[in-house]
């Protein structure tokens, strides 16, 4: 039965992720006073890339990069329960807790770094370097916030954390939420922290040498991973969800905030974004942690 559950989770994340990406492009277009593409546009792109033929080879390690990345994304998804008190759509969350999820979220970028390094494209390597630098910076405030939430809930189980919130954590512990939100914007690759894939500087960054089926795989894993991260944020800070409707509107509100945030800000350079992330959100997170441990519960 668990196989069916996992398959359903994957299918849901795939389609919702792609529709969110389509919405992202459409809403960004509206911000720029354009009509914009349909909400299925990213899905079309992905299928089209799947139908392209590749004539080049960089060796097996190069092609393992996207596969490791997709593995990381899908495993992350499987260990995050969609609903806090439901048997179905809980995936493998009974076998692993928040620590495992935080570890699995790192697997993808590292695997991708190895694959891109083999490709030998200077822009790809440059993009990966920037990506990893940003990753180390954004982890700091996010981990502090997550540790604080775990200590408040006295649990590392995601479903327990989601279910135990009488007032949702975003209102009960706003400082932690704000700090985690900055990291989350960076995790979603939005402005002002979008220097990794900056098309004018490093030619779409880590993905610059990938084409065809592997690019399609990268797009799919990006959609799935985005949805997984959204569900994680909803579980940790927005009180989790009890049904599909609640899950969808909560993730969508969060996603809309990220889009709006990204649409109005320019781009930080790599050192600037690192500077910002380890100064402002980290300090907010530490203050939040002190408040939570001193006056929490």
């Amino acid at each position: 039965m668990i196989i069916l559950d996992l398959a359903l989770m994957l299918i849901t994340a795939y389609f919702v992720g792609f529709i969110y990406y389509g919405l992202y492009r459409n809403i960004t277009a509206r911000f720029q006073r354009r009509i914009g593409p349909t909400i299925f546009q990213s899905f079309y792109d992905s299928i089209k890339f799947f139908g392209k033929k590749e004539a080049i080879s960089h060796g097996w390690m190069f092609y393992l990069g996207p596969i490791i990345m997709a593995t990381g994304a899908i495993m992350t998804l499987f260990f995050i329960p969609f609903f806090y008190q439901s048997e179905s759509f809980s995936g493998l969350s009974g076998y692993g807790n928040l620590f495992l999820v935080l570890y699995l979220m790192l697997l993808g970028p590292l695997g991708n770094a190895m694959g891109v390094g083999v490709g030998g494209n200077p822009f790809g390597v440059m993009g990966v370097t920037r990506g990893l630098t940003r990753l180390f910076a954004l982890e700091l405030p996010f981990y502090i916030a997550v540790v604080a939430i775990m200590s408040i809930s006295q649990s590392a189980d995601i479903a327990t954390i989601a279910g135990s919130q009488t007032t949702i954590n975003a209102f009960a512990h706003p400082l932690l939420f704000i700090a985690a939100l900055f990291s989350f914007v960076a995790m979603m690759g939005q402005s002002p922290f979008d220097v990794v894939g900056a098309p004018v500087e490093v030619y779409s960054g880590p993905a610059s040498e990938f084409s065809g089926k592997f690019l399609s795989l990268l797009m799919s894993q990006s959609a799935i991973f985005s949805f997984a991260k959204l569900v994680l944020m909803v579980n940790l800070f927005l009180g989790g969800a009890d049904g599909f409707f609640e899950l969808l509107w909560k993730t969508f509100v969060l996603f809309l905030f990220v889009i709006a945030f990204g649409a109005i800000y320019g781009r930080f350079k790599t050192p600037q974004s690192v500077d910002f992330l380890i100064k402002v959100p980290t300090v907010i997170a530490i203050v939040g942690l002190i408040f939570a441990t001193a006056w929490g519960n």
Partner: peptide, 12 residues
């Protein structure tokens, strides 16, 4: 972009 036409940075 409303017609599905968009820029790509690399020839791949």
């Amino acid at each position: 972009e409303r017609l599905g036409i968009r820029g790509a940075a690399t020839p791949r």
